[in-house]
Each structure stands twice: as structure tokens, then as C-alpha cells.
Amino acid sequence: MDINQLQTFIRVSEFGSFTKAGEQSFISGTAVMKQINRLETELNLKLFLRTATGVTLTPQGKKFLPYVHQLLALLDTAIEETRKVRLDDKQVISIGTSILHPADPFMVLWRQLAPRLSKFQLRLVQLQEDLTSSNREYALLGRSSDLIVGTFDNTTLKQSFRAIKLGAYHFGIAVRSDNPLAQLDTIKFENLANQRLLTVPTGISEKNDQLRSEMLNTVSSIRMVETDGRYDINTFNRAVDENIALISLTPWKDIHPNLVTIPLETKITVPYGLISTKFPGRITDNFLNAFLQVFNQK
């Protein structure tokens, strides 16, 4: 039995569905079902009744549920209190960072505001790849890190996250340096006529969907090539290998040595900021409230 299994047990009890619980964790319904099956086997308990329309807690599951809530709350408290002791009573906030979600934009701001938030200590955490998740870095929030610096829109915030906006990223088109588009100072939609353009599928990013719609309404011959999900480093390798243009964002302009990113002429931008789970825990919540107060006074 591990923490992930207990967190999954709570989500399944809330949503009454392996699939819906998986969507909240960015894993498949099958992966959720396997976690629950393993938990029931290890505990020798029947926690859920499975039906064609969903799952419901058994009497054993109902008895077990409040204890799981207490156990996870106690663990959160233990971690928070231990962090205080370890670093001279400073409240430690872990910021996740990765190639696709660099913490740099926030760290520049933090150096300006840190003197007014002296009771907090930041700790950078390298986000590890979670191959079972369709949204790896976001799925790790609350597990390996308290916060990440990333993009968000209504689609993101509907999936159990909260965000403090720090600014906006701009769209660009990333191409191989030997691609004719790389010679342009800016790219207009017309420059992409008859081009293959690598992008995420619809439904993942509201802003990306708006951009796609604007592009195709202007130039119908643009051929959208969809990735399997959100970008990972292999997406950028694919753009190089296939010499295909790719919709990119500000923080990714130097992500690959063989790609050049040209600014795209569009008024659509993507907000970015500090992202946490909706219920991040007391210390993280205190930090976000204190940061927001100082940030608004800047």
C-alpha cells in the first residue's frame, strides 16, 4: 500500500468512476482500476462495488474512507512540521521545474520580492517524467512539488488547479534552421499555407484551440498534424526529424539546438503563472496568499 493508492481511493469514492478519477489524476481509468485492485488485495478488503454505470463504496469502503482522510492529513502535517525544523523554522515551498515548465520566469520575480517574504524558503525540484500521465508535470503537483510555473486557461483550471497569473507567453512557430520559414522575422498565417503544422489535439488547451481556429479560418490549406497529447521532448525531436513546423511558446524558444522559433503574428497569448492544486495544504496556501499580496503591491 502506498500514498498514491490511498489518494486514488479517495478520488474514486468522490467521482464514483475509475475513468473520471483517472481524468483528475491524468492517468487512464484502467490504471486507476489496477491501483484499486492492488489496494484491495493488499488489505484483503472489498472497497468498491463495480457496476456497468460506475462504482460505489462497500460498507467496508465507507468505514475505511474517513481513516484515509485522517491518515493523509496527518502525513501532510508531519511533512510540513518537519520542513520547518529542518530549515530554521522557515516555511519551505517546493517549486517544480522541467524543460517544458521552467521556473525561470518566477525566479526573476522572486529575487525582487523575497525580502518581503522572508519567512518562506524556496526549494527547486526537478520534475520527473511520469509515463502513465497525459499531463506529466501537472499530475505531479502536490506530490513531488507544491507549485509549478506553467500555462493555464479555463480547461486547466477546471481540472482541480488554481493559478496566480504572472504574465503571458506568446506563440511562435518553431522550424528547423534550414527551413525557408526560418529566414522570416515574423510569421503570418499566410506564410503557413500548405504547410504541415505540429500541434496538440483540440480540447487540451483553450488558447491553442482558439489559435487553430483563427489559423484555419484565415488559411484553410494549413494541415494540422496532432501529437498524442501534450508536448514532451520527443515532440521537438519529431519537428526536427520530419522537418515539420511546430506551434511553440515563449519559454521553448531555445529548447532544441536545431530549431529556430519565429514570432507568430497573432493577438492570442497564453497566461502563465504559479499553479497549485485547488487544496494545496496550509503552508502552500499561506505562501500563495502572502505572495499575492506582495505581488499586487509591486
Rank of each mutant, 00 (worst) to 15 (best):
L87E: 13
R238N: 13
S17T: 01
P263A: 06
I255D: 10
L87P: 01
R230M: 12
V68S: 00
M1Q: 02
N135G: 08
L71A: 13
G172Y: 00
K298I: 02
V68I: 13
T261H: 03
L74C: 09
T82E: 14
F287A: 09
F15K: 01
R223V: 13
T151R: 10
R196W: 15
R50P: 05
P66F: 02
E242V: 15
Q60F: 04
L211T: 07
K158M: 04
A114N: 14
S134N: 15
T41Q: 07
T218L: 02
Q210A: 06
Q183N: 10
L74P: 05
A290H: 08
F279P: 01
L192E: 03
L47D: 14
V219R: 03
T8N: 01
A290P: 00
L259N: 09
M107L: 15
K188H: 10
V175F: 11
T202R: 15
E190V: 02
S134E: 08
D285G: 07
D130A: 07
G150S: 05
N289M: 09
I283H: 01
D178M: 10
H256R: 05
S144W: 01
V85N: 06
L87A: 13
D146T: 02
L157S: 00
T277L: 03
A182W: 03
L198P: 00
G150F: 09
P102D: 09
V294R: 08
S276F: 02
G54I: 11
V200L: 12
R223E: 15
I99W: 08
G167M: 12
K46E: 14
L45W: 01
S145M: 07
Q128G: 15
Q297G: 05
Q195F: 14
R176E: 14
M33Y: 14
L249D: 12
S98P: 03
A290L: 04
I95K: 04
A31S: 11
V175E: 06
G281Q: 08
T41M: 03
H69C: 08
R212I: 09
L141M: 01
S13W: 03
Q7F: 05
T235L: 15
L124A: 09
S13M: 01
L122H: 12
R162D: 05
I95N: 00
D185C: 05
E190S: 14
F295T: 02
P180N: 06
F152D: 03
Q183D: 11
F295K: 10
I93Q: 01
Q159E: 11
S213R: 15
D88A: 09
T51M: 08
I204W: 11
H256L: 14
P59Q: 12
R86E: 14
N296L: 03
G273K: 10
L140W: 01
K165C: 12
